[in-house]
């Protein structure tokens, strides 16, 4: 089980307190009706699925309830850092 640092609670807590929220920094389109099929495909379905450094969202669902971002190595499952939602990509 992963130990995850919540940047809001500033505490390392076990994974069962958290819900995974998928890849981070995928911006919702500002003008959806202007999007082509290809852009919709990219937004909805295409993911980096990185082997190595992976940016992802987690939600501290059984804690503060807030979303935050994390960088984790997907080969070792080791977290590099976690940071608050809205902060620059690290």
């Amino acid at each position: 089980m992963l130990l995850i640092h919540c940047p809001y609670c500033d505490e390392k807590r076990p994974e069962i307190e958290f819900a995974y929220g998928g890849e981070a920094h995928i911006a919702r389109p500002l003008d959806p009706s202007a999007l082509s099929d290809e852009e919709w495909e990219t937004y909805l379905f295409i993911r980096s699925n990185a082997r190595g450094r992976h940016h992802e969202r987690w939600r501290h669902i059984h804690g503060c309830g807030r979303f935050f971002n994390a960088v984790r190595d997907t080969v070792t499952d080791k977290f590099e850092t976690t940071y608050k939602a809205g902060e620059e990509r690290r």
Partner: peptide
């Protein structure tokens, strides 16, 4: 498991 990984192992829970 709930997260993307290539580690070939998962969590006990």
């Amino acid at each position: 498991d709930q997260y993307v990984s290539y580690s070939q192992r998962g969590a006990l829970h």
